[in-house]
Every structure is written in C-alpha cells, then in structure tokens.
Computed example of a mutant assay.
Amino acid sequence: MQYTVGVEYALHCLVYLIDVPSKESVGIKDLAEFQGLSETFLSKVFGKLSKAGIVSSVPGVKGGYKLAKSPEDISFWDVVEAIEGPKPIFQCKNIKENGYLYREGCCSAPTFCTINLVMLSAEEKMRDDLRSKKLSWLNEELNRVLPKQIREDTRKYFS
C-alpha cells in the first residue's frame, strides 16, 4: 500500500495556508515554486482539495487558494481521501469461490471472507488514526520540531 506523493504535497501546502490572512490567498505558482514542482501537478492536487471542500479558490489576478475550513477541522484522512479517493486499499476478489471444493460443488462458500474482514478492520484503524491528526496538530508539531528560522522564512515567503 502506498499513497501518491500528492498527499504529501497537499499536507505541506495546506500547512503553508494556515497563516494566510482570511481575506488573502496563495497562488499555485508560489506554492509550486516553493515545493519545487510543476504548477500543473499541484493544480491537479488543489483541484481535488477544492472539490472536497478543504480549500477554496479565489479568482482573479491576485487569486489563488485559501483554507475553506479551520485547521482544527481538516484531518489527515480528509486530505488522503480527497487525493486518493474513498475506495478501500484491499480489494477482495472473493477468490475462495474459485477453490477446488467450491468449484466441484462439495461445499458452499461462506457469505463473508475472513481475510477481507481482517484487512478492512486494519484499514479502519489506520483511518481512525489519520482522522485524529488534524492540520492544526501538524502546524504545532512543525513549530516544535523545525528550527524557528525555517518556520519564519516559510511564513515570510507566502506573505
């Protein structure tokens, strides 16, 4: 299982938007330049974030994006689901029904797959953990672990 790099870029960019005054926005060009990636790629990421209601776009020459919700109301899972979609990681193909005994009609397959139940349970635990981590937590954690100068320089870049 692997999430695309879009999730990582989204989380980084969303943290940068936290300190942007509510009447202002940050352009994709600035976000992409700061991250060192293409505007096209980041535009696709932000299109998904916008569709999910995590950011809102501001049209015009000075337009860009800003948070559509409070950082306390945006979880890591919200971002993952916006970028990756809602489908489960494990896709049960119900292969037990192809087994010899079931093919030969000796037995009937149970209506549930134990393997699928375990995998779905594990995924739900991961989702719960990601739901518990909010963008506001990430911002506080970065303030704690990164040098103060890096955080200040980042804020200056986007102001």
Results as ranks from 00 to 15, higher is better:
Gln2Ala: 12
Tyr3Cys: 04
Gly6Asn: 11
Gly6Glu: 13
Glu8Tyr: 12
Leu11Phe: 06
Val15Lys: 09
Tyr16His: 10
Tyr16Ile: 00
Asp19Thr: 02
Pro21Trp: 10
Pro21Lys: 13
Pro21Arg: 12
Pro21Ser: 12
Ser22Glu: 15
Glu24Tyr: 05
Glu24His: 05
Ile28Lys: 05
Asp30Gly: 04
Asp30Trp: 04
Leu31Ser: 06
Ala32Glu: 10
Gln35Met: 15
Gln35Pro: 01
Gly36Gln: 09
Leu37His: 05
Leu37Pro: 01
Leu37Asp: 03
Ser38Ile: 04
Ser38Met: 04
Glu39Leu: 00
Thr40Trp: 07
Phe41Tyr: 15
Leu42Lys: 07
Ser43Gln: 12
Phe46Lys: 06
Gly47Met: 08
Lys48Cys: 04
Lys48Gly: 05
Val55Asp: 08
Ser57Trp: 01
Val58Asp: 12
Gly60Glu: 11
Gly60Asp: 10
Lys62Leu: 07
Lys66Val: 02
Leu67Pro: 09
Ser75Arg: 08
Phe76Tyr: 06
Glu81Tyr: 04
Ile83Pro: 04
Glu84Asn: 05
Pro86Thr: 12
Lys87His: 09
Lys87Tyr: 07
Pro88Leu: 07
Cys92Arg: 03
Lys93Ile: 03
Asn94Tyr: 03
Asn94Val: 01
Asn98Cys: 02
Tyr100Arg: 09
Glu104Arg: 00
Glu104Cys: 00
Gly105Asn: 03
Cys107Ala: 14
Cys107Thr: 02
Cys107Met: 14
Phe112Trp: 08
Thr114Lys: 02
Ile115Ala: 05
Asn116Cys: 15
Asn116Thr: 01
Leu117His: 04
Val118Gln: 09
Met119Arg: 14
Glu124Thr: 07
Lys125Ser: 08
Arg127Trp: 03
Asp128Glu: 15
Leu130Trp: 13
Ser132His: 07
Ser132Glu: 09
Lys133Gly: 00
Lys134Val: 02
Ser136Trp: 10
Glu141Asp: 03
Asn143Tyr: 08
Arg144Ser: 10
Leu146Cys: 06
Pro147Phe: 13
Pro147His: 15
Thr154Asp: 08
Thr154Glu: 15
Thr154Ala: 13
Arg155Asp: 13
Arg155His: 09
Lys156Ala: 09
